[in-house]
């Protein structure tokens, strides 16, 4: 175990860990929202995210921005970011809805047990990622550069780049917006009501199916935002990236306490850090082993996560 390396680079490892964790957190929101509402592990959410990365890419190609284009001016960069966000959010949202309508709603109507949902979710995940894989020839696609990555500040040995800072800030802003939406708006109240007691909520005149659709859309939009950030940070995408990111985001959700919005943020950031420190200790090839080991250990010893499970009572 390479403690020397870990302590020599602790600052940089923390920064990159947090920005990686911010992406996990945004994806984790999708798992947490749906789980909080339906007690369902939306296994296909990983593909919702994957579709988002392609959505942003298509949107950019549509407006004529390609992989090797020169770095645009600042105003154009902002335009392109928004275009990418819209593209990713729309694709992800549509995918999330498609999964809900095709794979879940027919089962819910029949009141099927939880494991049946999980199996259709796996089926949907497999089908989406394979369909995209076939359509894209299982190729890797590069992203255009929207800005030049530079170090903004150096605190001790930690180099904070505009990219990492942007990712972390963007993720936190999205979280706050979602939190406000869930807690302050009428639609958000509907979500909380159904999460707490769906039968009573239905009696109170809340349209459960509309709330569910809304939740899937929200989760999809968050996954779209995560996809955009992922494109900026990683720079490439493939049809099969969903599985790994998805299971890590799920780990983050469970780590923080699935069903709990704040838990998703905390869990995402914590997982990003643990994973980064772990890969510094054991070598980068063991990075994913660390993540999975964290998942297994948490579920064994604290299955309700750090903050406990709750969407109904959510202070996101």
């Amino acid at each position: 175990m390479n403690f020397e390396f870990l302590f020599a680079n602790i600052g940089d490892l923390t920064v990159t860990g947090l920005s990686q964790g911010a992406i996990y957190a945004l994806i984790a929101l999708g798992y947490t929202l749906v789980y909080g509402l339906l007690k369902l592990i939306n296994f296909a959410h990983s593909e919702v995210f994957m579709m988002g990365t392609f959505g942003a890419l298509f949107a950019w190609q549509l407006v004529g921005l390609h992989e090797n284009n020169p770095i645009p001016s600042v105003p154009m960069m902002i335009v392109y970011l928004l275009v990418g966000l819209v593209g990713a959010a729309v694709w992800s949202g549509v995918t999330a809805l498609a999964v809900e309508f095709v794979a879940y709603r027919p089962l819910r109507r029949r009141n099927a047990p939880r494991l049946v949902f999980l199996i259709t979710a796996i089926g949907a995940s497999l089908a989406i990622s394979e369909a995209v894989g076939i359509a894209t020839g299982r190729q890797q696609f590069g992203m255009p550069d929207l800005f030049k990555t530079t170090t903004l500040v150096t605190i001790g040995d930690a180099h904070i780049t505009n990219l990492d800072l942007g990712v972390i800030v963007a993720a936190i802003v999205m979280m706050v917006v979602l939190d406000q939406f869930i807690n302050r708006t009428r639609l958000g109240r509907g979500i909380r009501a159904v999460a707490q007691d769906s039968d009573t909520a239905a009696l109170m005149g809340i349209n459960k199916n509309r709330v569910i659709v809304l939740t899937f859309v929200l989760g999809g939009v968050m996954a779209g935002a995560a996809a955009l950030l992922y494109n900026l940070k990683i720079g490439v995408t493939r049809a099969d990236i969903g599985f790994l990111l998805g299971i890590k985001a799920f780990t983050a959700a469970v780590l923080g306490g699935i069903g709990n919005l704040r838990g998703a943020l905390l869990g995402g950031l914590a997982l990003g850090l643990v994973e980064n420190y772990g890969s510094a200790l054991f070598g980068t090839s063991w990075r994913d082993v660390v993540a999975f080991a964290v998942l297994v250990i948490i579920l064994m010893f604290r299955p309700t996560g750090l903050l406990g499970e709750s969407l109904g009572k959510a202070r996101a």
């Binding site: 592990i41 939880r114 494991l115 999980l118 299971i247 799920f250 780990t251 469970v254 070598g283 090839s285 063991w286 994913d288 082993v289 999975f292 080991a293 998942l295 297994v296 579920l299 064994m300 299955p303």
Partner: peptide, 26 residues
């Protein structure tokens, strides 16, 4: 893990399968 709820067990076992593969790789 066998004391866990059913869907959690599913995910833990998935994690186990992936850990075995990653160990085989590394």
């Amino acid at each position: 893990t066998l004391r866990l709820r059913g869907d959690y067990l599913a995910i833990v076992t998935l994690g186990f399968g992936e850990i075995v593969r990653l160990i085989a790789v590394n």
